[in-house]
């Protein structure tokens, strides 16, 4: 790890001014991804801007309209345990409960989690792949077991976050600030495929900061579920996951969002599958159809074909459990 200067920011404007003034400056939140990258020489900022010293950035509250407002440095553990979240946005708690490990959840922040870099082992290892300025993606023709089955352009890495698909299923957005302006970006357009020289998965500029995550109020009776498949029972990234939020009136589905994790560079919205279900009564047979549609357009690589079957299975099971009322 290269030496660096360390600054405790005391306000958002401080932090943003520092980001602008220090081209080699980076925000450190929980540090669980950043320090890992720095130890491996994959990031070498000269200035670390600690935003955990800014008052009020760890709030979890509802605004007047009942939307959930989450401060960026809120740790995953606190968010998952929050009474309001458990009451109205249980999907978030569920996704967090299968994220990383207890210690990591105590350290990792909401903003840090959605900004984490890819876990592709070529990227994290000592390989010159496309994402690190090399010529090509080594995973595509190589060890692609963990790679994506959707939307890979030049890089087949997947977005590793569990929180992101859950937030997307709830229609969340992030509020971003830079020296000039403040904007709200729906998460759906926040995530992008990683590109050369921008190995992150987001549209965030390097002098910008996430100052808030906003989760809209969900319709009464709307319920969600998060299912995740991993290499062992815990403390692993998703091989595939499904975040589903389902709203019904009478028996009919009024709205549904199905987001797949671990299969694409962005949390992957299975829009076609949602369309099959919306407005209908979810019978077992319909659910099978929805699940079958969920992986439409998938292009598996040499070793990740299993993800197609897996993603379908997770969608089918998640919907069945939601419909069954076997879950709250």
């Amino acid at each position: 790890m290269r030496p660096f200067e360390h600054v405790d920011a005391t306000s958002v404007s401080d932090a943003i001014a520092l980001l602008k003034a220090e081209p080699d400056g980076t925000i450190i939140a929980g540090g669980t991804d950043l320090l890992d990258l720095m130890k491996d020489g994959l990031a070498s900022p000269r200035v670390l801007i600690n935003v955990k010293t800014i008052d009020g950035l760890d709030r979890i509250e509802a605004d007047a309209a009942g939307h959930l407002i989450i401060g960026p440095i809120t740790t995953l553990a606190r968010l998952a345990e929050d009474a309001r979240v458990r009451q109205d946005f249980l999907l978030l708690s569920e996704a967090i409960s299968v994220t990383a490990s207890p210690q990591l959840r105590n350290m990792a922040t909401v903003a840090g989690n959605v900004c984490q870099r890819p876990r592709c082992w070529y990227y994290r290892g000592t390989f010159d792949c496309f994402l690190k300025g090399g010529n090509s993606c080594l995973a595509v023709g190589g060890r692609s077991r963990d790679s994506g089955i959707f939307g890979a352009a030049e890089c087949a890495a997947v977005n590793p976050s569990d929180l992101a698909p859950a937030l997307l299923a709830l229609g969340a957005s992030v509020v971003i600030e830079n020296a000039k302006r403040r904007r709200e970006v729906p998460l759906e357009s926040f995530f992008t495929a990683p590109q050369k020289d921008r190995p992150g998965f987001t549209v965030l500029g390097r002098d910008e900061m996430i100052v808030e995550v906003k989760v809209p109020k969900q319709p009464v009776g709307s319920r969600g579920i998060y299912l995740k498949a991993m290499e062992r029972k815990t403390w692993s990234f998703a091989q595939a996951s499904a975040a589903i939020q389902l709203s019904r009136a009478e028996a009919r589905v009024t709205d549904v969002r199905i987001i797949l994790g671990g299969v694409a560079p962005v949390p992957w919205r299975a829009s076609a599958a949602e369309d099959v279900l919306r407005g209908k009564v979810p019978t077992g047979e319909l659910i099978e159809r929805v699940a079958a549609t969920a992986t439409d357009g998938a292009h598996p690589l040499g070793q990740n074909g299993y993800k197609v079957k897996l993603a379908k299975a997770l969608v089918k099971r998640g919907l069945a459990m939601l419909v069954d009322n076997s879950r709250s």
Partner: peptide
């Protein structure tokens, strides 16, 4: 091991999985 390069891909305790309490 990545055969084309002859280099290990999971030389750490994250990608090389060992059982946890839950396994």
């Amino acid at each position: 091991v990545d055969s084309p390069t002859g280099k290990a891909l999971n030389a750490n305790l994250e990608a090389y999985k060992v059982p946890t309490m839950l396994d």
